[in-house]
Design a binder for these strands. Sequence first.
DNA 1: TATATTTGCTTTCAAAAAGTAAGTAGTTAC
DNA 2: GTAACTACTTACTTTTTGAAAGCAAATATA
Lengths: 102, 102
Amino acid sequence: MLYVRDSLDVINGKWKMMILISLMNGNRRFTEIERSIPKITSKVLAKELKDLEENQLITRTVHDSYPVLVEYSTTAYVKTLDKVLRELHNWGINHRKKIFGK
Amino acid sequence: MLYVRDSLDVINGKWKMMILISLMNGNRRFTEIERSIPKITSKVLAKELKDLEENQLITRTVHDSYPVLVEYSTTAYVKTLDKVLRELHNWGINHRKKIFGK
DNA sequence: TATATTTGCTTTCAAAAAGTAAGTAGTTAC
DNA sequence: GTAACTACTTACTTTTTGAAAGCAAATATA
């Protein structure tokens, strides 16, 4: 289990996974993403997006149109997180059952 | 991916997973655990152990011996996290390869 | 034309979390 | 008697988070 630490260093945090999932669900614009994640604030979202970009998990594209659009999308690399996310999802379902009964 | 949030609420944080892994590896005493996790401080460890206990992921047993011993161990429930941890481990290996090259 | 609203953020200030270092009570080893 | 170990706690500093407001440019509404 030595390498769990390495994973956590990248994807740990209250929001990173949720942002990745939001992007995988097709949200691309800043405000879309913000609205898709309950309770996140724009300051935190802006910061986390920068973080994720630095870690090459997402890309930020500015479209030179009128009005200027900024689009975020996941890189191919994020697909490698699929299994992690699936297991977290499964465990979440399970845990919810345990806590709230049935 | 709706339930990832529920999982994160419980096992998120810089240290929780590492503490669970340490316990799964056989460490049971406060100081053992502390020594097994680089850079964790006793204050943070004490707090996280309380958290994990409240979430019923670990148990704390005080042995009324001389000297008094305190032992921590994971509950059966933690076994359900096995897959999550395994995937995080795998991804960590993979990520390390990507960053440092093979 | 004037006002309101949207987008993609940034700024300011307050609160919470995390880290650092030292301390403590009891026990035991030297 | 001095030092060391165990399982923490306390006091203080630094970092991170959060809440709220602001902003420039553009578009929509009245």
